[in-house]
């Protein structure tokens, strides 16, 4: 991922209290946990920095109260951050005037909300067309576009329904269609599936992946569900007490959790579907014979082969060059890290 970042967050702070700016200054722009406790300030987002690259799904994961919601509201400027920098295609979002901000939201951003945020007094069609309406699109144009979006999310025939007449999953489809109506570059999703039943949630995740394959948006996705993060994310950032504890690909996170907090999440992760053979292979070279595995293969797919073999098996890259080896012991250690200890 060498392309320039679509979004860059630099040392972002969001502090609640009577005088957040002064508080930050008093503590040399780096207040400690004790400072917050002592002065009764709340540090919802503390010194967070990260980049989001074009076409990437970045997941921000954290439990409730970890600051993930505040973070996404800071990036979208729904709540202005206390301090820091947000670069959007290299431009400082925090310096944008209200008019510029409105313009950005009308053309570049789309957002999906946990409780859908549909306008109860408008039909499905009118809800989806709403962002186009506020930016002044003609009726014909916005309704055509809205119909396309409704079709995209599979709600044709429900255009004239009102939100109260739809199920939760259907309502969120409307929310998704609405957020995509303006063809945004950047797509924010704030716990979009948390309010849904588990079965529907699964279905919506698939739907989301399908759409992303089609649209290739740059995505910031908030969730409190680690499984969802692993399933959907290209990279995952884990937040705790306002800080970004670790930002990594699912595989790196599972194979090398930054601390016990992260490890706790990864413990029950489906390692077989996250780790690649390359990541767990040894660097020793074994002769390549008829039996070998691709380094990019998930260990779950290679497990049967490796476990049934008495000897180490060669690991090769896409060009067929050997890059290492894997044996039964290594495979078991990778699949069951706790049991092996």
């Amino acid at each position: 991922m060498t392309a320039p970042a679509k979004i860059s967050c630099r040392h972002l702070w969001k502090i609640f209290g009577p005088d957040p700016q002064g508080f930050l200054k008093r503590h040399g722009e780096a207040p400690k946990d004790e400072d917050f406790a002592r002065e009764n300030y709340i540090g919802a987002v503390r010194d967070v920095s990260f980049d989001v690259y074009p076409g990437e799904i970045l997941i921000i994961m954290g439990l409730s109260g970890s600051g993930k919601s505040t973070l996404i509201r800071a990036i979208t400027r729904l709540n202005d951050p206390t301090q820091g920098q947000i670069l959007l295609d290299g431009n400082d979002l925090l310096k944008a005037t209200p008019a510029e901000l409105i313009d950005l939201r009308r053309h570049k951003m789309g957002m999906v909300f946990q409780h859908f945020g549909l306008l109860p007094h408008r039909s499905v069609l009118s809800n989806v067309a709403f962002p186009l309406e506020v930016r002044g699109a003609a009726r014909e144009e916005r309704e055509t576009r809205a119909r396309e979006m409704i079709k995209l999310v599979g709600l044709e025939g429900r255009e004239d329904y009102f939100p109260r007449e739809l199920s939760g999953g259907q309502q969120q489809r409307v929310g998704i269609a609405r957020s995509l109506a303006v063809e945004p570059d950047i797509w924010f999703l704030d716990e979009p599936f948390s309010a849904l039943d588990p079965l529907i949630r699964r279905e919506m995740q698939d739907e989301f992946l399908r759409l992303q394959k089609l649209l290739r948006k740059t995505i910031v996705f908030i969730t409190h569900d680690f499984d969802e993060a692993i399933r959907l994310g290209d990279r995952i950032g884990i937040m705790k007490d306002g800080r970004l504890v670790q930002l990594a690909t699912p595989e790196d996170m599972v194979s090398a959790p930054a601390d016990d907090y992260v490890r706790e999440f990864t413990r029950n992760a489906p390692r077989d579907r996250i780790l690649t053979v390359g990541a767990v292979a040894s660097r020793e070279h074994v002769p390549v014979n008829g039996v070998n595995v691709l380094a990019s293969a998930k260990i779950g797919d290679a497990a049967a082969l490796v476990l049934s073999s008495d000897k180490a098996i060669a690991v090769i890259d896409a060009d067929g060059k050997p890059v290492g080896a894997i044996d039964r012991k290594r495979m078991i250690a990778a699949l069951y890290p706790d049991g092996a200890r």
Binding site: R105, R106, G117, L118, L119, P131, E133, V134, G175
Partner: peptide, 20 residues
């Protein structure tokens, strides 16, 4: 959520008031 959806749709303050 509804208010924020209005903001994110790019409503001006007046639009937010009247339409949302």
């Amino acid at each position: 959520d509804v208010i924020e959806a209005g903001h994110m749709a790019g409503c001006t303050p007046l639009q937010l008031l009247w339409k949302v």
